[in-house]
Design a protein around this nucleic acid. Sequence first.
DNA 1: AGATGCACTTAT
DNA 2: TAAGTGCATCTA
Length: 701
Amino acid sequence: MEQRPLIAKVALSIPVHKEFDFIIPDLLQSVATIGKRAKVPLRNRERWGVIIAITEESRVSSDLEALITVADDPSYTVADVEFCRWMSDRYLAPLGIVINRPLPQRVTESVKRYYQSTVGVTEAALVIDKLKRRAPRQAALLQVISTISTSMISEAELSGQLGEVRRQLIRLREEGLIKEVQPTTQTRESLPILSIDETAAVKQICAKFTQGGRVLLHGRDRRGIYHHVVAEAIKRGESALILVPERLLLSQIFHSFRTQWGEIVEIYHGGLSEGERGRIWNRVRSGDCLIIVGTRSAIFLPFTNLRLIIIDEEQDSSYKQQDMLPYYHAREATFMKGEITRKHRQAPLLLLGSVAPSVETFHATHTEEIELIRLKQQARKSDVEIKVIDLRRVRKSDLCISPQLRQAITATLSHGKKVLLIVNRRGYFPVVLCKECGQSLRCPQCGINLVYHFTTSQLLCHLCSTVYHQMRCSQCHSRALRFLGVGTQRVEAEINRLFPAAATIRIDTDTMRKKKEQLSFTRRDSDIVIGTPMVAKGSQWTQLGLVGVVSADTFLGRPDFRAAERTFQLLANSVSQIESGRIIIQTYFPDQYAIRYFALDDYDGFYHEEIDYRKQFFYPPFSYLAKIILRDNDQQQKKIEMIKKILAPFPVDLLGPTKTPGVKKEEKYLLVKGATSTSVCEATTALLHAISELRIDIDPL
DNA sequence: AGATGCACTTAT
DNA sequence: TAAGTGCATCTA
């Protein structure tokens, strides 16, 4: 008897909250399965999508088209499709976008060349010194290769860090300073030796392997523990995913696992080439690769036997995708990944790590959704001294470097150690006031403060990059201006004046545009580093003796209920940069609780004060938020009225509209605030159905 | 008439 | 997303 053809539901990469049905032709019957990529006809064109379901019926009345082809790889597992569907529902992003964006379209079987240093670190340092002048690029290259010592590094990864390096590699090989190695000739190192405290923590964590679960590891120096826990997962023949917040932090941790485990370890992030991502995708799917060190997008990889997910620096805001759909939080997504894995096979263990955990996570350890394991030394190292400088008592307050900080810098440099200065804003004067009307100068397009850049003598909008040559008030056109605030350029200028002999480097978005190789080289070589908070992430620095937070108030003063938390975390991160030495914090509010508790090395004290504040003002984790983003258009007011009307029957509050700080043009947002996650979810889903073209950010940061 | 621009619709 | 449509405006 004639059988009716099966129908494939295909999620296409178009911003529409629906999937499309196609007939599966007989020939493709066996290959068209859930999770595979399929080529389909759409409006007389061909497009690729992902098969998310196979059904017998279609609710589409007109004649259906048929699938054109099905690609065998790369593909998703059934559990991955379920995961993407959850993400689409949770973060209100079309499934087609969620599922197609991380999936590579191509796979390359590239033959990669790996290199290793043939000389020791000390010997390499001598050669580097000699090479520096004549061949700076070779010097930088050797620097990178020699610091990973017994590990190996591929040309692809090197050029990712330093730019085009082929000729320099050949030259260094000719000189006998490096050699090409096969990935298999790897020397395995034994696991790091742990303290009694750490051994106990490993034991406690590994005990959770049988049932799975969530653990927060609170403390510093977590790497050794990670190694042991990963070893346990691998011993069981299963895989581990190690997440870090940013690409910059991948290399170090990746190489420490590479030396341990060889080729079963891969690095993964969104910046890899399509082909490379495809290759890793397949290796994960087939089980050839068991350990992934990656950024948030690595949660989409098609693991078939995932047993462990480590989320290091779990408090870091980079885990939330902010710039494109879906606006997901990788920490929350791993929780669901865990649930889905549990359903399909076995519950994995989720291990969150931080010195200064997010308020949400720490709160969850009290409600017992997450188990807390603490290391004895939580944040402070015994030989790190923390000093808060009360700027109200500093006389020459027109300078950004107080005499105390200046003195500390002098002392640090004289000991041959390096200095890291953290400044929140880039440019010279981040605030320009008009003396006539008292208004700050703003970008007429974006409505954010214009920043004075000294080097170019111009006013710059940091958002749309528009340059204003005319130095006059945009409101009243007065030329009488007052320049205020502390930016990276201003600190740099002041440091150059105070310490003319020191080698200084500034690291912010302005200088990052410079050639990669120059930067990565000089950053290791400078005495004083001045940078935006990104320089305090991970542990990128060696030989640091002092971290100076030039103005803690610019962090505290942000219009954000998380300002105190962010400040505490930044300060805690600055400690991780140092082995021994000093942290100096300059502030006009030394009694502010984030600063006070940090100076006392008391995370719990901070947490209790912060959680009281959150409770009192009904902020997360006591309430749930969603941000409704209104792009600029003339119907804004009308839309706001509609939103109010639609939300009226729901048990949620509506706040705003507010101009989005630091975001383009006339963009405004409304905040939906509810007592349960369900109430916010139902309200926002209703909105999405009623008004298309709305951007909704669930659990915004 | 034909070209160009722009807002709006909608796909299986 | 991006092709197709209708409608207004411009050009010679």
